[in-house]
Simulated assay, not measured.
Amino acid sequence: MAEVKLLGFWYSPFSHRVEWALKIKGVKYEYIEEDRNSKSPLLLQSNPVHKKIPVLIHNGKPICESMVILEYIDETFEGPSILPKDPYDRALARFWVKFLDDKIAAMIKTFFRKGEEQEKGKEEVCEMLKVLDNELKDKKFFVGDKFGFADMAANLVGLWLGVFEEASGLVPLVTSEKFPNFCAWRDEYINCSQVKEYLPPRRDELVAFFQARARAAAKK
């Protein structure tokens, strides 16, 4: 039997993407929780370039970066397809994954900044939401009529964006008045059976964790 290990953080949307894919494929794996402040020798050895999670280790060989890992899982293990079969739909899925991942670093930092930096960050988040609001009109999934690759990447905005908002204590940026299509999609996304089963159940703990990070950032 193949040996599969996943190095991650319980509060990371990137770790949860990989867990999601493994569970959908029915792959048995060992989850290893890493310490953000004291990374293990296994993590540093497995990802010497970026020194970050998630890392999938399959038969002793490490694979890094969450969406690269998802493609590897899809190609390596039997089970439901994660990427669309149609080449054009695959290209669309990869496009939206890149869009989301390009925006997420700025989105996360926004909720832990102060003053002018925070205001500029909020503007960037709103621009991202405008794009998504336009794209998601009357759509249940990002690509086609099947849950898949881009939808896994969308956990960043489907769940974690709301967690960051709540944890930071800022006036909510995401409202149904401003972004009706996005909000309708988000509500459908979180409650969709294909999603709900795999999202982290401890939302209150996620909020508490990021509240602590927001307080620590405010003291700097």
Results as ranks from 00 to 15, higher is better:
residue 3 E to Y: 00
residue 8 G to E: 11
residue 10 W to Y: 09
residue 13 P to V: 03
residue 14 F to V: 03
residue 18 V to S: 01
residue 25 K to E: 08
residue 25 K to P: 09
residue 27 V to S: 02
residue 29 Y to W: 09
residue 31 Y to S: 05
residue 34 E to C: 05
residue 36 R to M: 15
residue 37 N to E: 13
residue 40 S to R: 02
residue 42 L to V: 13
residue 45 Q to H: 00
residue 46 S to R: 00
residue 49 V to N: 11
residue 52 K to E: 14
residue 53 I to M: 12
residue 55 V to D: 03
residue 58 H to K: 00
residue 63 I to T: 01
residue 64 C to K: 01
residue 64 C to N: 09
residue 65 E to A: 05
residue 67 M to I: 02
residue 70 L to W: 12
residue 71 E to M: 13
residue 74 D to S: 07
residue 81 S to Q: 15
residue 84 P to S: 02
residue 85 K to A: 15
residue 86 D to W: 07
residue 88 Y to V: 01
residue 88 Y to A: 02
residue 90 R to M: 11
residue 91 A to T: 14
residue 101 D to E: 15
residue 101 D to S: 08
residue 101 D to H: 14
residue 103 K to P: 07
residue 104 I to N: 15
residue 105 A to F: 07
residue 111 F to W: 11
residue 115 G to C: 09
residue 117 E to A: 04
residue 117 E to R: 00
residue 121 G to A: 04
residue 122 K to V: 11
residue 125 V to Y: 02
residue 125 V to N: 04
residue 126 C to P: 01
residue 130 K to C: 11
residue 132 L to E: 08
residue 139 K to D: 12
residue 140 K to E: 14
residue 142 F to I: 05
residue 148 G to M: 01
residue 148 G to A: 03
residue 150 A to M: 12
residue 152 M to E: 07
residue 155 N to Y: 04
residue 156 L to Y: 08
residue 157 V to I: 14
residue 157 V to E: 04
residue 161 L to E: 01
residue 172 P to E: 11
residue 172 P to I: 09
residue 176 S to R: 15
residue 179 F to R: 03
residue 184 A to T: 14
residue 189 Y to K: 03
residue 193 S to C: 03
residue 197 E to H: 10
residue 202 R to G: 00
residue 203 R to E: 06
residue 207 V to Q: 11
residue 210 F to P: 04
residue 211 Q to H: 03
residue 212 A to G: 06
residue 213 R to L: 13
residue 219 K to Y: 04
residue 220 K to M: 03
